[in-house]
């Protein structure tokens, strides 16, 4: 209903303000029509913005002089011109059409309904040296007061209403995205730790070589001390690696089982020669009663390196 009323009002105004260019008038020969579309003419209160829209039709080759457009400014103590928008629809059938939007804001504070007038706007159409005035007509409307003249309700006559709460920015999506990204990052970190055997993952069943590498002290190669203690440390390191082989294969792996082991766990083939030396060394150490020979076969520092290598092979980063 409101929309229909507005259209009707606009049509009424249209009838009032349409100016027909008279062909006999040489000054207006180039101006076809100026049609003003305006909002309803009543019920406006202080602070309202009013958008006047004028359709201007000129005879080509006349164009509207952009310099004649009014700059946005305070027109007088109660009326501000906020915005001026000119839309050029181009030339069609010898007629150059424009739409000029003028946005006003009224600050008039009437005590009772009062008719006010937005003044006409004078523009020019130009063609070379020729200048033709184009008038966007004035428009009048009724402004209404916001409050009654004499207060009838209780309490102070006019109290400032509390400010409206500032509208909240829509952050739910952002928060969801953040949570998701954090989750993904955490998951990726866990996966990485799992893959690399960090922290508690170093102890998981599927990573026996990670456990073995942890059990073999880095100082195995460098630690000084009496040879018996060193031999026992060396034997422990060998044992740790053997347990890792057993756990990887799910059963005891002896030197004679190595071909089968490499068949089942092809990744370890990369270290085949060292592994064979490891088994030869542990044979000497454990069954040949020849720990010194074992350490010559596979020196402690190489044993440490091998443990690290096997751990890398195990996690697939060799």
């Amino acid at each position: 209903m409101g929309r229909l009323a507005r259209i009707l009002a606009t049509l009424g105004l249209l009838a009032t303000f349409v100016l027909l260019a008279l062909p006999t008038s040489p000054a207006l020969a180039q101006l076809r029509t100026v049609e003003l579309y305006a909002p309803r003419g009543f019920g406006h209160v202080i602070g309202d913005t009013l958008t006047l829209s004028a359709d201007i039709a000129l005879d080509a080759p006349f164009v509207l002089d952009p310099a004649s457009l009014p700059p946005p400014r305070a027109l007088n103590y109660w009326l501000d011109l906020h915005e001026v928008r000119l839309e050029d629809h181009g030339v069609s059938e010898g007629v150059h059409r424009y739409t000029l939007d003028l946005v006003y804001q009224t600050f008039y504070a009437p005590l009772e309904p009062r008719r006010l007038t937005i003044p006409a706007v004078a523009l020019f159409a130009i063609e070379g040296e020729r200048r033709v005035p184009v008038q966007v007509p004035a428009w009048s409307f009724l402004m209404s007061p916001l409050r009654e003249i004499v207060a009838t309700g209780p309490g102070p006559a006019m109290q400032l209403r509390p400010d409206i709460a500032p509208p909240l920015l829509p952050t739910a999506g952002l928060l969801r995205g953040l949570a998701l990204a954090l989750g993904v990052a955490l998951l990726a970190l866990l996966l990485l730790a799992w893959q690399m055997g960090w922290g508690p993952f170093g102890r998981r069943r599927a990573r026996p070589f990670a456990r073995a590498a942890r059990a073999i002290p880095l100082t195995l190669a460098t630690a000084p001390g009496d040879p018996i203690l060193a031999a026992s440390r060396y034997a422990h390191a060998l044992q740790a690696l053997h347990r890792a082989f057993d756990a990887t294969d799910g059963k005891g792996v002896f030197a004679e089982d190595l071909p089968g082991f490499f068949e089942r766990h092809a990744a370890f083939r990369a270290a085949e020669a060292e592994v064979r030396r490891l088994f030869a060394a542990s044979r000497r150490a454990f069954f040949g009663a020849d720990p010194a020979g074992a350490q010559r076969e596979l020196p402690p520092d190489e044993l440490v390196a091998l443990a690290r290598r096997l751990r890398a092979v195990e996690r697939g980063t060799a």
Binding site: Q239, H242, D246, G250, G252, F254, S282, F287
Partner: peptide, 8 residues
């Protein structure tokens, strides 16, 4: 037994 008993 051979699978489970750790050697050496």
């Amino acid at each position: 037994v051979f699978e489970r008993v750790p050697a050496p």
